[in-house]
Protein backbone atom coordinates (compact mmCIF):
# COMPACT_ATOMS: atom_id res chain seq x y z
CA UNK A 1 0.00 0.00 0.00
CA UNK A 2 1.13 3.47 -0.64
CA UNK A 3 1.63 5.19 2.71
CA UNK A 4 1.42 8.70 1.23
CA UNK A 5 -2.24 8.27 0.47
CA UNK A 6 -3.09 6.61 3.72
CA UNK A 7 -0.97 7.80 6.63
CA UNK A 8 -1.88 10.87 8.52
CA UNK A 9 1.07 13.16 8.31
CA UNK A 10 0.65 14.59 11.84
CA UNK A 11 1.64 11.35 13.51
CA UNK A 12 5.28 10.50 13.23
CA UNK A 13 6.07 6.83 12.92
CA UNK A 14 9.61 5.93 13.94
CA UNK A 15 11.87 5.31 10.99
CA UNK A 16 12.43 1.63 11.69
CA UNK A 17 8.71 0.88 11.87
CA UNK A 18 7.57 2.73 8.81
CA UNK A 19 7.35 -0.38 6.70
CA UNK A 20 5.23 -2.21 9.21
CA UNK A 21 2.99 0.39 10.76
CA UNK A 22 0.76 3.06 9.35
CA UNK A 23 -1.17 5.49 11.49
CA UNK A 24 -4.28 6.90 10.06
CA UNK A 25 -7.81 7.97 10.79
CA UNK A 26 -10.90 6.01 10.02
CA UNK A 27 -11.99 8.65 7.53
CA UNK A 28 -8.78 8.38 5.61
CA UNK A 29 -8.78 4.62 5.56
CA UNK A 30 -12.39 4.56 4.47
CA UNK A 31 -11.92 7.10 1.72
CA UNK A 32 -8.62 5.66 0.58
CA UNK A 33 -10.16 2.26 0.00
CA UNK A 34 -13.24 3.74 -1.58
CA UNK A 35 -11.44 5.97 -4.02
CA UNK A 36 -9.31 3.15 -5.35
CA UNK A 37 -12.22 0.94 -6.28
CA UNK A 38 -14.77 3.18 -7.91
CA UNK A 39 -16.77 0.93 -10.16
CA UNK A 40 -18.39 2.74 -13.05
CA UNK A 41 -21.68 1.70 -14.53
CA UNK A 42 -21.36 0.16 -17.97
CA UNK A 43 -23.57 2.62 -19.63
CA UNK A 44 -22.80 4.72 -22.64
CA UNK A 45 -24.94 7.30 -24.30
CA UNK A 46 -23.17 8.79 -27.29
CA UNK A 47 -19.85 9.87 -28.72
CA UNK A 48 -18.24 10.23 -25.30
CA UNK A 49 -18.97 6.57 -24.61
CA UNK A 50 -16.51 5.62 -27.33
CA UNK A 51 -13.86 7.68 -25.58
CA UNK A 52 -14.86 5.99 -22.34
CA UNK A 53 -14.29 2.61 -23.98
CA UNK A 54 -10.95 3.87 -25.24
CA UNK A 55 -10.09 4.94 -21.70
CA UNK A 56 -10.91 1.47 -20.45
CA UNK A 57 -8.84 -0.16 -23.19
CA UNK A 58 -5.16 -0.84 -23.22
CA UNK A 59 -3.70 2.54 -24.03
CA UNK A 60 -5.25 4.42 -21.12
CA UNK A 61 -6.21 1.49 -18.93
CA UNK A 62 -8.70 2.43 -16.24
CA UNK A 63 -7.57 -0.62 -14.28
CA UNK A 64 -4.67 1.44 -12.96
CA UNK A 65 -7.25 3.37 -10.94
CA UNK A 66 -9.21 0.34 -9.80
CA UNK A 67 -12.04 1.34 -12.08
CA UNK A 68 -11.92 -1.36 -14.71
CA UNK A 69 -14.83 -3.28 -13.25
CA UNK A 70 -17.64 -1.83 -15.31
CA UNK A 71 -20.91 -3.09 -13.95
CA UNK A 72 -23.92 -3.30 -16.22
CA UNK A 73 -26.20 -3.29 -13.20
CA UNK A 74 -26.74 -0.05 -11.29
CA UNK A 75 -27.00 -2.03 -8.07
CA UNK A 76 -23.31 -2.82 -8.17
CA UNK A 77 -21.86 0.43 -9.38
CA UNK A 78 -20.49 3.47 -7.58
CA UNK A 79 -20.23 6.03 -10.29
CA UNK A 80 -22.43 6.82 -13.23
CA UNK A 81 -20.51 8.24 -16.13
CA UNK A 82 -23.08 10.18 -18.10
CA UNK A 83 -21.18 9.94 -21.34
CA UNK A 84 -23.07 11.80 -23.99
CA UNK A 85 -26.17 13.70 -24.92
CA UNK A 86 -29.05 13.15 -22.55
CA UNK A 87 -32.28 13.17 -24.48
CA UNK A 88 -35.77 13.65 -23.18
CA UNK A 89 -36.66 10.14 -24.23
CA UNK A 90 -33.75 8.75 -22.24
CA UNK A 91 -33.85 10.84 -19.05
CA UNK A 92 -36.62 8.80 -17.32
CA UNK A 93 -34.37 5.75 -17.62
CA UNK A 94 -31.33 7.63 -16.39
CA UNK A 95 -33.17 8.93 -13.35
CA UNK A 96 -34.44 5.43 -12.64
CA UNK A 97 -30.92 4.02 -12.92
CA UNK A 98 -29.66 6.70 -10.59
CA UNK A 99 -32.36 5.88 -8.07
CA UNK A 100 -31.35 2.24 -8.24
CA UNK A 101 -27.71 2.87 -7.47
CA UNK A 102 -26.76 2.22 -3.86
CA UNK A 103 -25.19 4.97 -1.77
CA UNK A 104 -22.49 6.24 -1.90
CA UNK A 105 -23.04 7.14 -5.51
CA UNK A 106 -21.40 9.66 -7.76
CA UNK A 107 -22.22 11.12 -11.13
CA UNK A 108 -19.76 12.40 -13.66
CA UNK A 109 -21.06 14.52 -16.50
CA UNK A 110 -18.65 13.70 -19.27
CA UNK A 111 -18.50 16.21 -22.07
CA UNK A 112 -20.39 19.32 -23.02
CA UNK A 113 -23.62 17.48 -23.84
CA UNK A 114 -24.04 15.88 -20.45
CA UNK A 115 -23.11 19.13 -18.71
CA UNK A 116 -25.55 21.40 -20.48
CA UNK A 117 -26.75 19.90 -23.73
CA UNK A 118 -23.61 20.99 -25.54
CA UNK A 119 -23.77 21.72 -29.25
CA UNK A 120 -27.14 20.00 -29.35
CA UNK A 121 -28.59 22.18 -26.62
CA UNK A 122 -30.98 23.93 -29.00
CA UNK A 123 -32.51 20.62 -30.06
CA UNK A 124 -36.07 19.84 -29.10
CA UNK A 125 -35.31 16.42 -27.69
CA UNK A 126 -32.26 17.33 -25.63
CA UNK A 127 -32.11 17.82 -21.89
CA UNK A 128 -30.11 20.92 -21.08
CA UNK A 129 -27.76 19.19 -18.70
CA UNK A 130 -28.20 16.02 -16.73
CA UNK A 131 -27.89 18.10 -13.54
CA UNK A 132 -31.43 19.34 -14.12
CA UNK A 133 -32.48 15.98 -12.75
CA UNK A 134 -29.66 14.28 -10.91
CA UNK A 135 -26.87 15.83 -8.84
CA UNK A 136 -23.55 15.87 -10.65
CA UNK A 137 -20.23 15.64 -8.82
CA UNK A 138 -17.70 16.27 -11.55
CA UNK A 139 -18.05 18.04 -14.88
CA UNK A 140 -15.58 17.28 -17.65
CA UNK A 141 -15.65 19.89 -20.43
CA UNK A 142 -14.72 18.93 -23.95
CA UNK A 143 -16.50 17.60 -26.97
CA UNK A 144 -15.63 14.84 -26.57
CA UNK A 145 -13.10 14.89 -23.72
CA UNK A 146 -10.10 12.80 -24.68
CA UNK A 147 -9.50 9.67 -22.61
CA UNK A 148 -6.80 11.58 -20.77
CA UNK A 149 -9.29 14.29 -19.91
CA UNK A 150 -11.64 11.62 -18.65
CA UNK A 151 -8.89 10.20 -16.47
CA UNK A 152 -8.31 13.68 -15.14
CA UNK A 153 -11.99 13.91 -14.34
CA UNK A 154 -11.88 10.60 -12.50
CA UNK A 155 -8.91 11.81 -10.49
CA UNK A 156 -10.90 14.92 -9.65
CA UNK A 157 -13.63 12.63 -8.38
CA UNK A 158 -11.07 10.73 -6.31
CA UNK A 159 -10.06 14.00 -4.71
CA UNK A 160 -13.67 14.68 -3.86
CA UNK A 161 -14.04 11.25 -2.32
CA UNK A 162 -10.93 11.86 -0.26
CA UNK A 163 -12.34 15.03 1.18
CA UNK A 164 -15.53 13.48 2.49
CA UNK A 165 -15.98 12.72 6.15
CA UNK A 166 -17.82 9.78 7.69
CA UNK A 167 -19.64 12.08 10.05
CA UNK A 168 -21.17 14.21 7.37
CA UNK A 169 -21.83 11.96 4.44
CA UNK A 170 -25.48 11.67 3.58
CA UNK A 171 -25.65 7.90 3.46
CA UNK A 172 -24.94 7.51 7.18
CA UNK A 173 -27.58 10.01 8.20
CA UNK A 174 -30.85 8.89 9.68
CA UNK A 175 -33.66 7.81 7.38
CA UNK A 176 -33.56 6.70 3.79
CA UNK A 177 -32.63 9.12 1.04
CA UNK A 178 -35.41 10.49 -1.10
CA UNK A 179 -35.52 9.06 -4.61
CA UNK A 180 -35.71 11.54 -7.45
CA UNK A 181 -39.14 11.57 -9.10
CA UNK A 182 -38.92 10.01 -12.53
CA UNK A 183 -39.88 12.52 -15.22
CA UNK A 184 -42.81 11.70 -17.46
CA UNK A 185 -43.05 11.88 -21.23
CA UNK A 186 -46.02 14.04 -22.10
CA UNK A 187 -46.46 16.48 -24.97
CA UNK A 188 -42.97 17.41 -23.82
CA UNK A 189 -40.85 16.20 -20.96
CA UNK A 190 -42.62 16.71 -17.62
CA UNK A 191 -40.52 17.20 -14.54
CA UNK A 192 -43.01 16.26 -11.82
CA UNK A 193 -41.30 18.55 -9.33
CA UNK A 194 -42.32 21.45 -11.53
CA UNK A 195 -45.91 20.33 -12.09
CA UNK A 196 -47.42 23.38 -10.41
CA UNK A 197 -45.27 25.76 -12.43
CA UNK A 198 -46.14 24.00 -15.65
CA UNK A 199 -49.85 24.21 -14.96
CA UNK A 200 -49.63 27.84 -14.00
CA UNK A 201 -47.57 28.92 -16.99
CA UNK A 202 -49.61 26.99 -19.53
CA UNK A 203 -52.42 29.54 -19.21
CA UNK A 204 -55.29 27.40 -18.08
CA UNK A 205 -58.39 27.66 -20.19
CA UNK A 206 -61.76 26.45 -18.95
CA UNK A 207 -61.64 23.03 -17.39
CA UNK A 208 -64.05 20.93 -19.51
CA UNK A 209 -62.45 22.01 -22.76
CA UNK A 210 -59.10 20.92 -21.54
CA UNK A 211 -60.34 17.48 -20.61
CA UNK A 212 -61.88 17.14 -24.04
CA UNK A 213 -58.54 18.02 -25.61
CA UNK A 214 -56.80 15.36 -23.57
CA UNK A 215 -59.33 12.73 -24.61
CA UNK A 216 -59.13 13.76 -28.21
CA UNK A 217 -55.37 13.59 -28.11
CA UNK A 218 -55.46 10.15 -26.64
CA UNK A 219 -57.86 9.04 -29.36
CA UNK A 220 -55.62 10.49 -32.05
CA UNK A 221 -52.65 8.59 -30.83
CA UNK A 222 -54.68 5.44 -30.84
CA UNK A 223 -54.13 5.05 -27.14
CA UNK A 224 -56.22 2.42 -25.50
CA UNK A 225 -56.59 2.23 -21.77
CA UNK A 226 -53.35 0.77 -20.48
CA UNK A 227 -53.55 -2.91 -19.79
CA UNK A 228 -50.11 -4.14 -20.74
CA UNK A 229 -47.58 -4.44 -17.94
Amino acid sequence: MSPEGLSKPEYQVPQEMQNQVALTTLDRLYNWSRKNSVWPMMFGLACCAIEMIAAAASRYDLARFGMEVMRPSPRQSDVMLVSGTVTKKMIPQIVRLYNQMPEPKYVIAMGACASSGGPFKEGYNVVAGVDKFIPVDVYIPGCPPTPQALLHGLMTLQKKIESQSLKEVSWYQKGPGEPIPVPVLGPDLIDMRKAALIREKSQPVTEPEEAAVAVEEAAQNGELPAKEG
Binding site: S115, V136, D137, Y139, P141, A149, H152
Partner: peptide, 12 residues
Protein backbone atom coordinates in the same frame (compact mmCIF):
# COMPACT_ATOMS: atom_id res chain seq x y z
CA UNK B 1 -7.61 19.47 -21.59
CA UNK B 2 -7.36 19.12 -17.80
CA UNK B 3 -10.44 21.18 -17.14
CA UNK B 4 -12.69 19.04 -15.02
CA UNK B 5 -14.19 20.63 -11.95
CA UNK B 6 -17.00 20.42 -9.45
CA UNK B 7 -19.24 23.15 -10.78
CA UNK B 8 -20.53 24.57 -13.98
CA UNK B 9 -22.76 27.54 -14.72
CA UNK B 10 -21.02 30.89 -14.35
CA UNK B 11 -17.60 29.31 -14.10
CA UNK B 12 -18.09 27.61 -17.45
Amino acid sequence: FELSGYTRGESH
